[in-house]
């Protein structure tokens, strides 16, 4: 019962060492390798997730900056367009006013010229009529002093009016 058997001790030591060598390679080596690989994988996944989140953050801020820029740009464009439209409107208005003035002055000048021409024509007509009337009167009785004075007075009066 309590007999130590040298051969059994030696065999058991050999058995244990052999089993150790096999299990070290097959069981513990493989399982621990997988555990380490998984730990490395998890670490790598976390790292990459953090990296992509950082990148997303960067993209977001860049996008926001661009959006703000674009808004400014759009506002500027609208303001420019309004300015330009205002200027164009004012220029057109000024042109139109100038045109109106020009047309009116031309019309006034024409009216004045026509009135002058008409007046001149009328005066000539009146003068010739007066001369005719006067010559008729003179044919009849221009021998008297009084008649002559009348004709003169008439003529001067007409001349004053023309």
């Amino acid at each position: 019962m309590l007999d130590f058997q040298a051969s059994t001790i030696v065999f058991t030591v050999i058995n244990l060492v052999v089993l150790y060598l096999i299990l070290k390679k097959v069981l513990f080596g493989r399982v621990n390798a997988v555990l380490e690989a998984r730990a490395a994988l998890v670490k790598q996944e976390i790292d990459s997730a953090e990296a992509s989140s950082r990148q997303a953050e960067a993209y977001k801020s860049e996008y926001e900056a661009r959006l703000t820029d674009a808004r400014h740009e759009a506002a500027k464009l609208v303001a420019d367009a309004q300015n330009r439209a205002q200027r164009a409107y004012e220029a057109k208005l000024a042109d139109a006013e100038a045109d109106v003035k020009k047309v009116r002055s031309e019309a006034e000048a024409q009216i004045a010229a026509e009135r002058d021409a008409m007046l001149r024509g009328a005066r000539n007509e009146v003068a010739s009529l007066a001369l005719l009337a006067a010559s008729k009167v003179a044919q009849a009785s221009l021998d008297r002093d009084g008649d002559r004075a009348l004709v003169d007075a008439f003529l001067s009066e007409v001349g004053e009016q023309a």
């Binding site: 007999d3 130590f4 058997q5 040298a6 059994t8 001790i9 058991t12």
Partner: peptide, 15 residues
């Protein structure tokens, strides 16, 4: 059971 043999447990203890 091999562990019933004192030589086996002696080898284990020795290791």
């Amino acid at each position: 059971p091999p562990t019933k043999d004192i030589s086996v447990t002696a080898a284990l203890a020795l290791m």
